[in-house]
């Protein structure tokens, strides 16, 4: 098995992994904020729905959620299934929305009430307080847990193969059926390089925010 051909094939698979990764981030980061507002809401029904959502999604395996999204429509309602990538993205975005929302919530609730009150007595509007005072403190608080979760996401993309989406690990497995094992272990290099880049990025962000303490 030619090294270059295998690398090219694995890169094709890794491209799909990257698509899952970036679109999940893109969707789950803002949606997580919405759900976290729901979880912190004083309006009880909204709070219950948000918390229930988080409980169900965090309480069931992502693998199962993937199968429900992909097979569910056909099995339960006789509908046509979503295309594989769409199903994967729906499941991943829903799953990561729940996790991100909890990180945001802890970050927002971690800002002392005194910070809001200090803004209030200085005559600031709610919007000014959020954007000028609270936001950056929340960002600083959530960078470490978010980087953890985002690096987990990189590796979770490999779960997409349970519905046979040809991500990198699945591509590697097709080589094992041809009697070639090394591509499977070679995939580790792709993940390592990608996560290494992310680690550098998060380290950079943390250093950028190192000038103050919360």
């Amino acid at each position: 098995m030619n090294f270059l051909t295998v690398t090219t094939k694995l890169l094709e698979g890794f491209w799909l992994s990257c698509i899952i990764f970036f679109f999940t981030l893109f969707g789950a980061m803002p949606l997580g904020l919405l759900v976290s507002f729901g979880s912190m809401s004083k309006f009880r029904p909204l709070k219950i729905i948000s918390k229930g959502f988080v409980w169900v999604i965090r309480g069931t395996p992502l693998m199962l959620q993937l199968m429900i999204v992909y097979y569910g429509p056909g099995l339960m309602f006789g509908l046509t299934a979503f295309p594989k990538m769409t199903a994967v993205l729906i499941a991943f975005i829903i799953n990561y929305t729940a996790y991100f929302s909890e990180i945001y919530r802890s970050g927002i609730e971690g800002v002392p009430r005194g910070q809001y009150e200090a803004g209030q007595v200085l005559g600031m509007t709610k919007t000014q307080i959020f954007f000028k005072i609270i936001l950056l403190q929340v960002v600083k608080r959530i960078v470490p847990p978010m980087s953890n979760e985002i690096i987990t996401l990189v590796k979770d993309t490999s779960l997409a193969r349970v519905i046979a989406l040809m991500e990198i690990i699945m591509v590697a497995f097709t080589y094992t059926t041809k009697g070639v094992i090394w591509p499977l272990f070679y995939t580790g290099v792709f993940y390592l390089v990608f996560c290494g880049g992310l680690t550098l990025l998060f380290g950079f962000i943390e250093r950028k925010l190192d000038y103050f303490r919360v």
Partner: peptide
Amino acid sequence: FVVINWDTKEVELKAKN
């Protein structure tokens, strides 16, 4: 031809995928 997960082939069939 669609590549499936062999573990869930029966589900794929039932779901009409």
